[in-house]
Design a protein around this nucleic acid. Structure first.
Length: 458
DNA sequence: GCATATGATTGGCT
DNA sequence: AGCCAATCATATGC
């Protein structure tokens, strides 16, 4: 039997109390020895012989023999020696793999499951992920149904995961106990040290944890699939509310010469529209590119928003002009040559600020990449020097507003509603909004060369 | 059902 | 990091 072979292997070439033991037989010393009592040697020989022949006997006989051996006075000594030998050979083989560093992949899986709300604290599982997805997909409450559905599915996954995990743990414990009992039992007849049992437990645990890892992996996959199915922003695309689109469009067309809202402006818009800042960025990115590709198509829209803002501005302007007349000794519009080009309006708030600045000559330096003669007029008006510094959209919008205010007060309001109201003067030959130096030209809302739009071709 | 509109994503560029 | 351009995937209007 291999039990026999194992013992023999363990004992092969090892001298025990001065004896060389080979082939399962207690052999006499190869040559004369130092005269230790022959009785003990005989004992050891007997024991080994009995061990080796135990399998040749009948079960009852073997049991009796086994019992006899267990009770033998030399048994503990022999046992400990055999254990020691086994320990030594075992260590040399497995010593290297004893260390158990934390598996990075397992850590990744654990982190992910924790982040997804599958593992970790009970209840509210996935709420963080769902909330994040909600923010990404528009944040509106209209997809709460999908979210509750998502949460339900996630809870399901979570439950399955925990039940399976529990099952595995239970199986692992049961198996470990079983093996331990078996080994303990066998250790009465085989050289099995407690250390070895411990090691075996470690092996079992490693095996089970690799199974657990598979479980975690498939759970992660399931969560990923669930996420992509329920919360993929693309799938869940919802158009922004009409109001939000209006706010964004108003900003866009009132900053047509530089439709690049600053971070603050984006935040403000995001707040107003109940969307995220990145959604605002997306919107402006899309808008710029689509506007640029087909200006003609957007002309109507542009006019619409111009009229809209003009109406609201009219009141503010009237009030502001009235206000300014009391403040400024001279009316500065005499130095302006109005061009039949677009004008922009900002909020009433900034209009007032602008008017105040303008008429009191307290404005800072402007960078007007495309304002042409208008800018020069202003420069001469307030005496400030042009520094060419990059300024944010706010300053630009103030200037834009100023233009409008002036056009209003100078009686150019009849330009409103005309097709030439807006022009893409902010665009350069390369299609960029920046660094435009050419004065704006009146462009009729016809389909230009840029009207080809691959975007809609799908 | 199809065409178009629109929000989001991706890859490359500066 | 922010932008552009192309593209995707869904929404919407007819």
């Amino acid at each position: 039997m291999d039990e026999q072979a194992r013992i023999m292997q363990a004992l092969g070439g090892v001298s025990l109390a001065g004896h060389s033991i080979q082939g399962g037989m207690a052999l006499p010393p190869p040559h004369g020895h130092d005269g230790i009592d022959d009785g003990r040697k005989q004992d050891i020989g007997d024991i080994l012989h009995q061990i080796m022949t135990i399998t040749d006997q009948s079960l009852d006989e073997a049991q009796a023999k086994k019992h006899g051996l267990n009770c033998h006075r030399m048994k503990p000594a022999l046992f400990s020696v055999l254990c020691e030998i086994k320990e030594k050979t075992g260590l040399s083989i497995r010593g290297a793999q004893e260390e158990d560093p934390p598996d990075p992949q397992l850590m990744r899986l654990d982190n992910m499951l924790l982040a997804e709300g599958v593992s970790g604290p009970e209840k509210g599982g996935g709420s963080a992920a769902a909330a994040a997805a909600a923010a990404a997909s528009g944040g509106a409450s209209d997809n709460s149904i999908e979210h509750s559905d998502y949460r339900a599915k996630l809870t399901q996954i979570r439950q399955i995961y925990h039940t399976e995990l529990e099952k595995y743990e239970q199986a692992c414990n049961e198996f470990t106990t079983h093996v331990m009992n078996l080994l303990r039992e066998q250790s009465r007849t085989r050289p099995i040290s407690p250390k070895e049992i411990e090691r075996m437990v470690g092996i079992i645990h490693r095996k089970f944890s690799s199974i657990q890892m598979q479980l975690k992996q498939s759970t992660c996959e399931a969560v990923m699939i669930l996420r992509s199915r329920f919360l993929d922003a693309r799938r869940k695309r919802r158009n922004f509310s009409k109001q939000a689109t209006e706010i964004l469009n108003e900003y866009f067309y009132s900053h047509l010469s530089n439709p690049y809202p600053s971070e603050e402006a984006k935040e403000e818009l995001a707040k107003k529209c109940s969307i995220t800042v990145s959604q605002v960025s997306n919107w402006f990115g899309n808008k710029r590119i689509r506007y640029k590709k087909n200006i003609g198509k957007f002309q109507e829209e542009a006019n619409l928003y111009a009229a809209k803002t003009a109406v609201t501005a009219a009141h503010a302007v009237a009030a502001a002009v009235q206000n300014s007349q009391t403040n400024s000794p001279t009316t500065p519009n005499s130095g302006f040559q109005m061009k039949d080009e677009e004008f922009q309006l900002d909020s009433a708030e900034s209009k007032n600020t602008l008017l105040t600045n303008m008429f009191t000559g307290s404005s800072g330096s402007f960078n007007l990449p495309n304002s042409g003669d208008m800018f020069l007029s202003m420069q001469s008006l307030n005496g400030d020097s042009y520094q060419g510094a990059q300024v944010g959209a706010n300053v630009q919008s103030q200037v834009d507003t100023l233009r409008h205010v002036i056009s209003q007060t100078a009686g150019y309001s009849e330009a409103l509603g005309g097709n030439t109201m807006y022009s893409p003067h902010g665009l350069d030959a390369n299609g960029g909004w920046h660094d435009t130096t050419t004065p704006s030209a009146v462009i009729s809302p016809t389909e230009g060369p840029g009207s080809v739009h691959s975007d809609t071709s799908n």
